[in-house]
Write a protein that binds this DNA or RNA. Structure first.
Length: 312
DNA sequence: AAGCGAGACAACCGCGCACAT
DNA sequence: AATGTGCGCGGTTGTCTCGCT
């Protein structure tokens, strides 16, 4: 069954949106709210595809979107998250609610990827210097793998802090289109850590139900579905202690002295040699990923896990 | 001033997923 | 169970701007 076009191709205007079109779209959404995009062109008279209307709204017209230059912190976040999640721009954007996935994707393709590439050319020899493999090369050492996990924990820590301290946290993210929110909240739990709330929930669950089993070295067997969707994971003994250490590790402040985003990612590798010290972090990562293992262990984790396993 | 190329960003396209029928 | 539909996502392309020659 071929997928029918989302709209009639004939008579559909393409190209840049005019201010008049923007006004029409915004006023319609103000009245009816976002969602039901298929009805938007029909009800507004816009000669635009419904998909184009949604894109225009979510990427440009939606209130709360921050435009302009990316801050160092935002770039750091993007670099770390890209290393962690791969090109899951929507997932990455969920950590930067003021930025759209399209914005982040463009910034990555035009700025960050280049920066990483340049850095790579000035780094010790790597096997593959292509842009797409830069991420692979990031974690070919234990130290860098460790660093990535630490970053992940740091982000989770911050997300938890934000989620549990609404009065001190940053302003809430702008309202998502109603259709998006309702769909996600009702039947589509994102496989990735799409929100601070998710991470907070996982961490709470972890604190509530600390592991007691010994770690299995096999990462696949270490993941145990609790069955309740809460992301219950079997972790290693001593993980609770490691958690405290990890949670007190302030990655951004400790790893970056000049503020350049790429530096923090691509700095020289850690001197830590004890494999055992890595295991709790690895298990913790698995726990953080929880029931999302199918998602995470696709193009990124399987690949990196393979490298990681080879290091052991 | 004109031509050209690179960079930045907005928008499009095709696909997959999930829900409805 | 099969099919239809809407939406979101990621990759790619198109267009505009700016700097250099």
């Amino acid at each position: 069954m071929g997928r029918p076009p989302c709209c009639d191709k004939q008579g559909v205007k393409k190209g840049p949106w005019t201010p008049e079109e923007d006004i029409v779209l915004v006023s319609y959404i103000q009245q009816h709210g976002p969602g039901n995009w298929r009805a938007v062109p029909a009800n507004t008279g816009l000669l635009r595809c419904s998909k184009s209307c949604r894109l225009r709204w979510t990427n440009y017209l939606r209130p709360g979107i921050k435009r302009g230059n990316f801050t160092h912190h935002e770039e750091k976040m993007i670099i770390h998250l890209q290393a962690l999640l791969g090109n899951r721009w929507a997932a990455i954007a969920s950590y930067l609610p003021q930025r759209t996935d399209n914005d982040i994707k463009n910034h990555w393709n035009t700025h960050l990827k280049k920066k990483l590439n340049n850095h790579h050319h000035h780094s010790p020899p790597a096997t593959d210097l292509s842009a797409d493999s830069a991420r692979d090369a990031l974690f070919t050492t234990r130290g860098q793998w460790e660093r990535r996990l630490q970053t992940d924990i740091q982000m989770a820590k911050q997300a938890l802090s934000d989620a549990l301290s609404p009065e001190t946290s940053k302003p809430p993210p702008p309202p998502l289109p109603a259709a998006t929110e309702s769909k996600k909240s009702h039947h589509q739990i994102p496989a990735y850590a799409s929100s601070a709330g998710n991470i907070a929930r996982w961490l709470k669950e972890w604190n509530k139900n600390p592991p007691s089993n010994n770690p299995c070295r096999s990462s696949s067997s270490a993941v145990v579905d609790s069955g309740d969707g809460s992301g219950g994971i079997m972790n290693g003994a001593g993980l609770a202690e490691s958690m405290d250490t990890l949670m007190s590790f302030d990655y951004f402040e400790s790893s970056n002295s000049d503020g350049s985003p790429e530096t923090s990612v691509l700095q020289g590798e850690s001197e830590m040699d004890e494999v055992e010290e890595l295991l709790p972090m690895k298990l913790l990562e698995e726990w953080l990923h929880g029931d999302t293992k199918d998602y995470y262990f696709t193009d990124f984790t399987v690949d990196e896990k393979f490298k990681y396993d080879n290091l052991l």
